[in-house]
Structures are given as structure tokens and as C-alpha cells.
Measured scan of single mutants.
Amino acid sequence: MKGKVVSYLAAKKYGFIQGDDGESYFLHFSELLDKKDEGKLVKGSMVHFDPTPTPKGLAAKAISLPLE
């Protein structure tokens, strides 16, 4: 699924993505496929991810940034 980063707290390594389906997904650095892309996780960045339901809500897994 595609989505847009709505927040990312680099110090805490987490944030949120708004998916194309309108839902909010929890984003964690550990799910970023290329850790070098962390600096690109800023508000408004477009990402691809696997939407995954968890006991705490919806989460983004296997997060990647589109090729530039």
C-alpha cells in the first residue's frame, strides 16, 4: 500500500503514516527495509508498506521509500 508520513519522531524511532485507504498506521524504524532511508522519513514523504493489524491497532510493516 502507498501512504504519506504524517509524523516521525527520530529520537524515539516511531511515527505515523496515513494510508491511501485513509487509515492511520504506526510506523517504527525497525520496519524500514533500508535503514539509510531514515533521514527521508519526514512529514509528507511518500512510502510503500504492508498494512498489518496488531493487537494495538494498525501497523506499517516492510516500509520502503519510492525510487527517486
Results as ranks from 00 to 15, higher is better:
Ile17His: 00
Val47Lys: 00
Ser30Met: 09
Thr52Asn: 10
Lys40Asn: 07
Leu58Phe: 08
Lys61Trp: 07
Phe49Ile: 02
Asp21Ser: 04
Lys36Met: 11
Val47His: 00
Lys2Asp: 11
Asp50Trp: 15
Ile63Asn: 02
Met1Phe: 06
Lys12Gln: 09
Phe49Leu: 01
Gly15Val: 03
Tyr25Val: 02
Gln18Phe: 10
Val5Trp: 02
Leu32Cys: 03
Leu9Pro: 03
Gly57Met: 04
Leu58Glu: 02
Glu23Cys: 12
Ser24Tyr: 14
Lys56His: 11
Gly15Gln: 00
Asp50Leu: 15
Ile63Lys: 01
Gly44Met: 04
Lys56Cys: 12
Pro55Thr: 10
Leu32Arg: 00
Lys36Val: 07
Ala60Ser: 03
Asp20His: 08
Ala11Asn: 12
Lys40Ala: 08
Pro55Val: 10
Ala62Tyr: 11
Ser7Thr: 13
Asp50Gly: 06
Gly3Lys: 01
Glu23Thr: 07
Leu65Pro: 03
Met1His: 06
Val42Cys: 12
Met46Ser: 10
Lys61Ala: 07
Lys36Thr: 12
Lys40Trp: 07
Ala62His: 14
Thr54Cys: 07
Leu9His: 14
Ala62Ile: 05
Ala60Gln: 02
Leu32Asp: 00
Ala10Met: 10
Lys36Cys: 12
Lys40Cys: 11
Asp50His: 15
Met46Pro: 10
His48Thr: 14
Leu32Met: 05
Gly39Met: 13
Asp20Cys: 14
Asp37Trp: 08
Leu32Gln: 01
Val5Glu: 03
Lys2Glu: 07
Lys12Val: 08
Gly44Val: 02
Glu23Trp: 10
Ser7Leu: 14
Asp34Asn: 13
Leu58Thr: 04
Glu31Gly: 06
Lys13Thr: 03
Val47Thr: 04
Met1Thr: 06
Leu32Phe: 04
Leu27Val: 05
Pro55Trp: 09
Pro55Met: 09
Gly19Glu: 00
Gly57Phe: 04
Asp21Trp: 03
Ala62Glu: 07
Gly19Ser: 04
Gly3Glu: 01
Gly57Arg: 04
Leu33Trp: 04
Thr52Gln: 14
Ile17Ser: 00
Ser64His: 15
Asp34Val: 07
Ser30His: 08
Ser24Gln: 13
Ala11Arg: 11
Phe29Leu: 10
Tyr8Lys: 03
Asp50Met: 15
Leu65Trp: 06
Ser64Gly: 08
Ala10Pro: 15
Phe29Pro: 06
Pro51Gln: 04
Thr54Ala: 07
Pro66Cys: 14
Gly19Val: 02
Phe26Asn: 01
Ser45Glu: 08
Asp37Glu: 08
Asp20Trp: 08
Leu27Gly: 02
Pro53Ile: 14
Gly3Ser: 00
Met46Gln: 12
Asp20Val: 09
Gly3Trp: 01
Glu68Arg: 11
Glu31Arg: 05
Gly15Ser: 01
Lys43Ile: 10
Glu23Arg: 14
Ile17Ala: 04
Leu33Ile: 12
Tyr8Arg: 02
Val42Arg: 13
Gly3His: 00
Asp37Pro: 02
Ala11Ser: 13
Val42Asp: 05
Leu9Lys: 12
Lys4Phe: 14
Gly3Cys: 03
Tyr8Met: 05
Ala60Ile: 01
Thr54Trp: 06
Leu58Tyr: 08
Gly3Ile: 02
Val42Leu: 11
Phe29Met: 06
Ile63Pro: 02
Glu38Met: 06
Ala10Leu: 09
Phe49Gln: 00
Ser7Met: 15
Pro66Gly: 14
Tyr8Cys: 04
Ile63Cys: 04
Lys61Asp: 02
Gly15Ile: 03
Gly19Arg: 00
Glu23Gly: 08
Lys56Val: 07
Ala10Gln: 11
His28Cys: 08
Glu31Cys: 06
Val47Met: 03
Met1Trp: 04
Gly19Leu: 02
Ser24Arg: 14
Lys13Ser: 05
Phe26Gly: 01
Leu58Gly: 04
Lys36His: 12
His48Pro: 01
Pro55Lys: 11
Gly39Leu: 12
Met46His: 12
His48Ile: 15
His28Phe: 07
Lys4His: 13
Leu58Asp: 03
Ala62Arg: 15
Phe29Gly: 04
Ile63Gly: 01
Lys43Thr: 10
Tyr8Ile: 09
Ala10Ile: 12
Pro51Ile: 08
Lys43Trp: 10
Leu65Asp: 02
Ser64Arg: 14
Glu38Gln: 06
Phe16Ile: 07
Leu41Trp: 01
Ser30Trp: 08
Asp21Val: 02
Lys35Gln: 10
Pro66Ile: 15
Lys40Val: 05
Leu32Lys: 00
Phe16Trp: 14
Pro55Tyr: 09
Ala59Gly: 05
Lys40Leu: 10
Pro53Cys: 13
Ser7Lys: 14
Val47Cys: 02
Lys2Thr: 14
Leu58Ala: 06
Val42Thr: 11
Lys56Ser: 09
Ser45Asp: 03
Gly22His: 05
Asp34Ile: 07
Ile63Val: 13
Asp37Gln: 11
Asp50Asn: 15
Ser7Ile: 15
Phe49Asp: 01
Glu31Ala: 11
Lys35Met: 08
Val47Gly: 01
Gln18Lys: 12
Val5Gln: 00
His48Ser: 13
Lys43Asn: 08
Leu67Phe: 12
Ala59Gln: 13
Val5Ile: 11
Asp21Phe: 03
Ser30Pro: 03
Ser30Asp: 10
Lys12Asp: 07
Ser24Val: 15
Leu9Gly: 08
Ser24Ile: 15
Phe49Trp: 01
Tyr25Gly: 01
Gly22Asn: 07
Lys12Ala: 09
His28Ser: 12
Tyr25Glu: 00
Met1Leu: 09
Asp34Phe: 08
Leu33Pro: 02
Lys43Ser: 09
Met1Ser: 06
Met46Ile: 15
Val5Lys: 02
Gly15Asp: 00
Gly44Gln: 04
Lys40Pro: 02
Ala62Cys: 12
Glu38Ile: 09
Val5Leu: 07
Ser64Ala: 10
Gly57Ala: 03
Phe16Leu: 06
Ser64Leu: 10
Val47Leu: 05
Ala60Asp: 01
Leu27Ser: 01
